[in-house]
Each structure stands twice: as C-alpha cells, then as structure tokens.
Design a protein around this nucleic acid. Structure first.
Lengths: 123, 123
DNA sequence: CCTTGACCTAGAGTACACTCTATCACCTAG
DNA sequence: CTAGGTGATAGAGTGTACTCTAGGTCAAGG
C-alpha cells in the first residue's frame, strides 16, 4: 500500500500520516526504489486503535509513548497496561458524565419544544 | 459576587471569565463604583451549562452563538433548539462510540494481564 | 517527449482556546 | 500611610495537533 491508500482507508490525511511517522506514532516504513513509503496491512489496525486513543482524548504525547513502548516489545507490557488503565478509568467517568449531559440536553430541548408550542398556540 | 468568587465556584479562571465576557459568552456585567464586575447568582447556572457544552465538544464559536441567541430572547428559541439538537445527536453517537472503545480497552487490558501472568509463570 | 498525478523533504503557518504579562486603580487592615 | 490583595485593561504568548507550502523526484499514459 502507498500512503494515499492508507490515508483513504483510515481517514487520516497523507500529511498527518507523515507527521505521525515523524513524531514516532507510526514506525518508519519500508520504502520502494523511488523512496516512497510502502505499508503492510497491519498499519490499518494500528491506526484504527490510535484513532480510538485519540477519540478518548489521549494527548498525542501519550499516544507516542504508547507506540514507543509497543515497539520495545513485551518488557513494556505492564507499563502499557497501566497507561491504558488510567485512560480507561477516566473514560468510564467521562462516559457517565456525557450520558448525564445527554439527559440535560434532552430536557432542554423538550422545554424549547413546549415553549414553541405555547407561543404557537397563543398567537 | 466578585469575579474571584465566580472563578472559585465554577472552576473557570478569572482570566477565562474575562475572556468569555470579551467574546460574548458571558453578558457584560454590572460594575461597582470601582469598575469591578459584580455578578448575580444566575451566572453560576449559565456557566455550568456552558461547561457542559464545552465538554461535549461544542466549539467556542457555537457556544457564543448560543449565548447571543439566548440574549436575544424568545424569538431565537427554535434556532437554539436546532443547534442543541445537532449536538445532542452527535453526542449520542459519540457516547455509543466511546462505550465501544471502553470495551476495546477492557479487552486490551485483559490480554495484557494474561500476557503478564504467562510471563510471570514461565520465569 | 511531455504532462499529470502521486510521492518526497523541510519547515512555515493555522486554528483553537485559553493563559499570561505589564501596568495600573482601589480598598482594607496594621 | 503604606503594604497586600483583588480588581481592571490591552495585548502578547502558549500548547496542541495538525495543515499547508515550496520545491523537488519519479513512473506511466497520450
């Protein structure tokens, strides 16, 4: 796979993919004779996971840290577990809080609908 | 209430509160004889809601837009409802996706624990 | 051959949302 | 009456995470 295809499949832009490689979030890839990056299919799985880490609000620095540990192999497993655990617990709280906000929004929207109806009826 | 007290009660910094006023996210407040802002208790309720809008990822521009509509009164109710509805629907999707990610993380953490145990047993 | 399009690098620029600095005014307690 | 704390303004600076530009290489199709 060339970089354009990876971009298309993952939703990251070509620029972003090169940027991710530069900061160490993606491993350095093989190059073809012309110096162009050639990716294996594994990168898609990894990028999908990175996208998840991004969506839970893990800052890029920690994503890089995680990527570096992953590259170092099994010796970093417990550190990786701890890192994920921290974000997992945080995420659980955030999901709870967001669910609550969902209810608040629904209530607010409901009052707006009532208000609109009353206006409509009275005029 | 002076600005410091509002900051303490809401968790926003004094700087941020003044910034919010400048961009229109907070209404201009009354001032005392010395030119200092004097807030009523309502501002706490509003700021709590603003905080929620922030946490669901509404960009500050839309928060300001919402604040401006609110200040304009009842004529903007349906526009406000629409704006909230958009973010509500988005939020519902995000909550679902984050719950999924929570499962992914739990699974990952579980495999790390298994890996650690196996290593531990073999050594 | 030459154009088109995908790729390359290094590095500058952007958007967002604050966050801080410098410098000043005012009030209260010691 | 002065020191400390809180308030004020305008505007500069920061951190995060991209995003884009300039200037170039390379392979394939017309």
């Amino acid at each position: 796979m060339m970089i354009g295809e990876v971009a298309e499949k993952t939703g990251f832009s070509v620029h972003t993919l090169r940027y991710y490689e530069k900061i160490g979030l993606l491993p350095e890839t093989l190059r073809d004779a012309g110096g162009r990056r050639v990716y294996g299919p594994d990168v898609l799985v990894w990028l999908e996971f990175v996208e998840r880490l991004k969506q839970i609000g893990m800052p890029i620095r920690d994503r890089v840290r995680y990527a570096e540990m992953r590259a170092q192999g099994d010796s970093t497993i417990s550190a990786r577990r701890e890192l994920l655990q921290t974000y997992r617990d945080d995420l659980a709280k955030r999901v709870a809080s967001l669910s609550e906000t969902l209810d608040v929004l629904d209530a607010k929207i409901a009052t707006y609908e009532t208000a609109a109806k009353c206006n409509g009826a009275s005029r």
